[in-house]
Simulated assay, not measured.
Amino acid sequence: MEKLAIVKIGGNIIEDETSLVEFLNLFSKIEGKKILVHGGGKRATHIASKLGIVSKMVAGRRITDKETLEVITMVYAGLVNKNMVAKLQANQIHAIGLTGADLNSIQSDKRPVKDIDFGYVGDVKKVNHTAIDQLIAANFTPVFCAITHDGNGQLLNTNADTIASQLAVGMSALYETSLYYCFELNGVLKDFNDKDSVIKHINAPIYKQLIEEGSISDGMLPKLENCFDALQQGVTRVYLGNTSMLSQENDTYTTISL
């Protein structure tokens, strides 16, 4: 089975032009077939405030009303996505920027209202791996932003980590798929105050133990839940770390396996 790398890039790197250029250079050097996934929440919040739109967050998650969805679409699918595509073209990567609506590639259901109404937020329902593979087979490198659609004309704001993991699951029907979560830390940390305390390997029993110890909490919990969900559905390996893990010279990152 041919290999495919799916790389998700975090918001702090997107916001730092030097870090972004360095990351895209490393991404461009990955051999073989690849897909890039990105968000852009910090940029969306900044531009929304310039337009007089107050960003509402609950437990770290954005409430996406109609006005906010318009800003997110402009920022994610426009400004951030096309900036990355242009820089990848400069690296001789034949990139194409996409939302989940393009090629009907990622469909979502609007999140049902329980305790909180998140608005126009989507939970991924289906990945059209056949359509995405047509791009890959034609030597395009897809660059997905964190927007999906419901199949009935409605765009939906969708968590970029989840998009990356569900893309990896969908594409694992056709490829030996590896998923890389690139962010500002060196990996999953045993002690959050010690940036060098990287846990190099986590499997299901170790994960359970780390939760019981309280070593993993807050934002890392949903990220790791996505990792194990992807592995249980056919993804080969998942890696978490800073962007240098994409190079051959760095071995300090976290590998997740079952």
Rank of each mutant, 00 (worst) to 15 (best):
Pro112Trp: 06
Ser244Gly: 03
Gly32Cys: 04
Thr18Asn: 14
Ser197Gln: 09
Ser247His: 02
Pro205Leu: 07
Val188Glu: 12
Ser257Arg: 03
Lys126Met: 13
Lys200Gly: 01
Ser257Asp: 14
Ser165Glu: 07
Asp16Glu: 14
Lys87Glu: 12
Ala173Asn: 13
Thr177Pro: 01
Asp133Gly: 09
Thr236Glu: 14
Glu15Asn: 13
Ile96Leu: 15
Pro112Arg: 02
Arg62Glu: 09
Asn91Pro: 01
Val71Phe: 04
Thr252Arg: 08
Asp115Ile: 09
Gln233Glu: 12
Lys66Trp: 08
Gly39Arg: 01
Thr64Glu: 08
Leu24Arg: 07
Gln154Ala: 14
Gln92Ala: 12
Leu79Gly: 07
Asn128Glu: 06
Ala131Asp: 01
Val127Glu: 12
Glu213Tyr: 04
Ser165Pro: 03
Leu221Asp: 00
Asp229Lys: 11
Gln92Tyr: 11
Leu24Lys: 03
Ala164Val: 04
His38Ile: 10
Glu249Tyr: 12
Asn159Ala: 05
His38Gln: 06
Val85Pro: 04
Lys114Gln: 14
Thr68Gln: 09
Lys110Gly: 02
Ile30Leu: 15
Ile35Cys: 02
Gly10Pro: 01
Gly60Asp: 02
Leu88His: 08
Asn25Trp: 02
Glu17Arg: 14
Phe27Ser: 12
Ile202Ser: 05
Ser178Asp: 15
Glu70Cys: 02
Met1Asp: 11
Ala59Glu: 15
